[in-house]
Write a protein that binds this DNA or RNA. Sequence first.
DNA 1: AACTCGTCCAACCGCAGGTTC
DNA 2: TGAACCTGCGGTTGGACGAGT
Length: 226
Amino acid sequence: MATMMAWGVSEQGWRKGPWTPEEDKLLSEYVSLHGEGRWSSVARSAGLNRSGKSCRLRWVNYLRPGLKRGQLTPQEEGIIIELHALWGNKWSTIARYLPGRTDNEIKNYWRTHFKKKEKCSRKHEQRKQQIKQLEEQQLEQQEQQQQQPLEHDMMIRSVLFHAETSTDQKKTTEPQERQQTAFTHTTNYDQHQCLPHHHVMYQDVASWSDTVGDDMLWDGLWNLDD
DNA sequence: AACTCGTCCAACCGCAGGTTC
DNA sequence: TGAACCTGCGGTTGGACGAGT
């Protein structure tokens, strides 16, 4: 991949660009012997002509034992969506709740899907325009809608309610407890009958998205971010 | 077959906060 | 106490690759 990239040498003389298998081997051996940390000395002591930062990044994102490779599962996607709604771009924090996944991986995943948001937002704007144009014609209908809120609004409110409650839990619980509640409190929502689909979010986000539509899923979350 | 587009992934950079001396 | 260094985080970049046209 990066073979075509114009990688070279930094001002400090460190090698840059893709890691070779030999470098990986050197780094892995050194860390397994001496442990993580002191990355600057790792770079020197392991015989790697790499910056400490580069060594750390390579270890954390690629060489560290227990890393999962491959696509994120729907469950993991659900957790990411949920935690991002709570904490925003705190990738490292989110990554702690996904064993074997790195912040970089999660960040990359979100970024890929962020583009989806932009598209959805544009669609949403178009919809708003259309709604504006039809506003006068729909006055009577709007009165009806006020009595029976749109499913979309219900969705957003439910997610907001969910986030608020989760945030409260976050304030009062330890990380491990939080992790547990993150998986269990959906049941509470079923009890509240706030969001009939909600448990699906954890089981199969993709299918949920299919059910409610991308716009609905993403628009709701983005509003939450705002 | 060639091109475009979207996604995935690895790696770099700058910054902020922590630690050491 | 403050400067220098280290570490970790979030943002960004850009090549590879597959799917669609």
